[in-house]
């Protein structure tokens, strides 16, 4: 048996890539608990659910406690103030994500909630990252702001510093 190596001259002009785009569409069921939470946003209400066993207020609302494996029982309206738990300031665009940098993406724990929620922190001058990151850290007080016309999705609200810089 003989083997024949590839002829470099022939392979250098051979096609090297096949390009394809996946175009996928979905219509996800939201479920009763998430649906009620999103309906609350239209009234500028921030709704969590309390676990009857560990008594944590899970926010945003969840139908069961992942720790106790119990259904949550009561709706809890959480406050519009809280603290920054963690954040990043994004300066580079990610392909396929429709938001222009720079922006602050953050998790904040709101008054009355035992867990934190993701959102944008707005109102900060991000031109100089050193200056911006001197103004915020874990524990910095924040307040929630709602859009004038909430449509029932999580981007209806965002965070701003409780004491503007």
């Amino acid at each position: 048996m003989t083997t024949t190596p590839f002829d470099n001259a022939a392979t250098s002009s051979a096609p090297a890539f096949f390009e394809q785009t996946w175009d996928l569409s979905y219509r996800h069921a939201l479920g009763q608990t998430v649906g009620a939470f999103l309906a609350g946003l239209k009234d500028k209400k921030l709704l969590g659910r309390r676990c009857p066993t560990c008594e944590r207020a899970l926010f945003p609302a969840r139908s069961f406690c992942d720790r106790c494996h119990e259904p949550t029982t009561d709706w809890v309206e959480v406050g519009h103030r809280g603290v920054l738990e963690m954040f990043t300031i994004v300066y580079e665009a990610f392909p396929g994500m429709l938001v222009d940098p720079p922006y602050v993406l953050a998790y904040a724990r709101l008054d009355g909630a035992d867990t934190a929620v993701v959102g944008y922190l707005k109102g900060l001058d991000l031109t100089d990252v050193t200056k911006a990151t001197q103004l915020i850290t874990t524990g910095t007080p924040i307040q929630v702001r709602f859009s004038d016309n909430p449509i029932g999705q999580v981007t209806d609200f965002w965070f701003e510093l409780a004491s503007p810089a």
Partner: peptide, 11 residues
């Protein structure tokens, strides 16, 4: 846990 927001705070 799935939830990053559950990995902060006293609880």
């Amino acid at each position: 846990t799935f939830w990053m927001g559950d990995r902060v705070g006293p609880r």
